[in-house]
Simulated assay, not measured.
Amino acid sequence: MEETLNLEDILDVIKRNLIMIISLTLLFGALAAFATAFLMTPQYEAKTQILVSQAQESDAAVNNQNIQASLQLINTYRDIIKSPTVLDDVVANLDLEQTTSALSNQIAVSNQDQSQVVTVTVTDEVAENGEIIANEVATVFQEKVADVMSVDNVSILAPADIGENPSPVSPQPLINIAIGLILGALLGLGIAFLRAFLDKRVTTEEEMQKYLDLPVLGTVAKFDK
């Protein structure tokens, strides 16, 4: 006879293993909290915005063409910002310990669709360092792009400013703890259902009638020694 697992069986498995499931859930939540507090280094972000524009023209059609040209150049500018041409000077100017490659991994360059504003985001363990690096990247890029592209259409729209009390962007304690709790609960449920699947013993009158299709004629009471 094919066995099926109905809602009653599922609830029974959970009920019989509830302590184990709760214990694993709390354990993984505690491990996630510990790792977040003591093993993960806080990371801070500093952002500066660069405007890619063209000189104003009286003719609207020409102006629209210039805007489209600026938008097409933005992808090129994103590559230049993270290139050794710019970052080598940033490392030298600030006397940074990390290599150009390592610095590149700390930098993210993005822009919204159809926007002439490029955002340079620097992630660092020290908030002040991120602000200094972001502003230096913008300054060096503004100088270098004139030589590399023979254009003068870049200006710093908003320098990086982390404020007085910056908050880390990672790790995020609540999210990490929630993930730990979910993983613990899933592991507990997995173990509970695996044990139920592998346990072929018949331990109750109801199971005997269900699986053996035989009537129960009597039971033997269990006596304590």
Rank of each mutant, 00 (worst) to 15 (best):
T123I: 10
T25K: 05
L189G: 05
K225N: 15
V169Y: 04
V169W: 00
R195Q: 12
L157E: 14
A160V: 00
N165P: 02
T36P: 03
L24M: 01
L174T: 13
V220L: 10
S101D: 13
G190Y: 12
V91Q: 00
S170K: 08
F197Y: 15
N111F: 03
Q43N: 12
D124G: 07
A102T: 11
S110M: 05
M149G: 02
S115I: 01
I81C: 06
Q116L: 01
D199V: 05
V91Y: 00
T76Q: 11
K200W: 01
T25L: 03
D9V: 07
Q106R: 10
V118S: 03
V126T: 08
T4P: 01
S104C: 07
D147P: 06
A30M: 05
T219H: 12
E136G: 09
V137F: 06
V86R: 03
P171D: 03
I182P: 08
Q65P: 11
A160C: 07
V151C: 04
A196Y: 09
K15G: 09
V202M: 10
A138Y: 01
Q72D: 11
L39N: 10
T41F: 01
V154M: 03
V216S: 10
S115P: 00
L73K: 13
V148F: 13
V52W: 01
D224W: 12
E2W: 05
G218N: 07
Y211A: 11
A178C: 03
D213R: 14
G130E: 01
D224N: 15
L5D: 11
I10T: 09
A60Q: 15
S58K: 15
V202S: 04
T100L: 02
D147R: 10
T48K: 10
S115H: 04
E164T: 13
Q43F: 07
A134Y: 04
V90Y: 00
N111G: 03
T85D: 12
N165G: 09
I162R: 05
R195I: 08
F34K: 08
L96S: 00
D9A: 12
I81P: 03
M1V: 08
N64G: 07
N75L: 02
E97D: 13
D161F: 14
K82T: 13
L27M: 02
V169E: 11
V169S: 04
T139Y: 14
R16E: 11
Q54F: 12
K222C: 03
A37M: 12
T48H: 07
D12R: 15
E2F: 08
I177A: 03
T25Q: 05
V62W: 11
E45Y: 02
A134W: 04
N111V: 00
L87N: 04
M40V: 11
S70H: 06
F197K: 06
D88M: 05
T100W: 07
D152H: 13
A134I: 00
N6R: 03
F193V: 02
A108I: 09
A138N: 02
P159S: 07
V169F: 02
L71K: 07
A60P: 15
S58A: 15
V220D: 05
N63K: 15
V117M: 06
V202H: 08
V62N: 15
D88H: 05
V118Q: 01
E205W: 06
E206S: 06
G130C: 00
T123E: 10
S101T: 14
G180E: 04
